[in-house]
Amino acid sequence: MSFGASFLRHPDLFPARHSGEPWGDERVAIHFAGNVYVWDGLSATQAAAVRERFGPPCPPPAETPAAALEIRVFRASVEDFVDDGRIWAFDFDLDYAPDAIRFAGFRFLGRLDWTPRLRAALWTPEDSRLVSHAILENFLRAVVGYHLLEQGGVLLHSAAVADASGAYLFFGPSGAGKSTISRLNHAAGRMVLSDDMNALRLTPEGVVVERLPFAGDFGQKGGGAVGSYPARALCRLHKGPEPVLRPLSPAAAVAALLGCAPFVNQNPYWQDKLIERLQALNARLPVRALTFALDDRFWDLLHRGEIS
């Protein structure tokens, strides 16, 4: 099926520019991962919902953050969207071009353009359901994926657990054990940064994990504040009867990371940049394959760096 056909009545009338009628005059800034994402054109209802979902803005970071990325929100007509009886759909269509991406999903259209600079726009007929039906969050996740890559980082579908020494990242496809490892560690009193998505940055001091406000099924109960944590291990997760930690070749490591770098990994115009970033990440903090036996015995292996 062609782009947007399952969501939009007229995919060929997709907005070519960031323009339209805003929902209102409200602006809400969300601070995380060293960045500021400013939602502009919100109604009072939408702004209140965003503030409630994401909490108060984070304290300003120690260093000056990168320039804010503005996401403009415009009204769309409900008549622009296919009505097939669905109450909600999590997936959305993406269309890639050399200097833009178009999004079409359940009751929203979006654009991400990066000439002359990275900027985003969202059109939706939903006022109160902009946040409750995850329209804003779904779009924001994708925007963050590209923004991070532009800034020297990468978004990774992963669980992250932190202790006094730093953060340990566990990634893999659905069913690999990210939620299980998160639940086990939360029950054991460790800080779970997220069971779904984390940002990694390469800094002169090393790789850092930035906690994001996207927490997946585990929710926001992991404890700890939004912030940066030095990355101590990067593990491709597998389930098995006994805990094992083994090295991966650079190609296998990058391939594993690539499969878990959402939103960008299938964009042919950004793939080379993403692969280069993942190669650099693996060179700084080599990925290892961790067989997870659904208990916490793997911590001994990680803390000792014991490789089979």
């Binding site: 070749s249 650079p250 190609a251 296998a252 990058v254 391939a255 690539l258 499969g259 990994n265 299938q266 042919p268 793939q271 080379d272 692969i275 190669q279």
Partner: peptide, 22 residues
Amino acid sequence: ARYRNVGGEGIVVRQTAGEVLV
């Protein structure tokens, strides 16, 4: 199928299927 040489091995991305192979 788009590929890239990484350390003597190849990473292949099958765009349509969204698969990554080594």
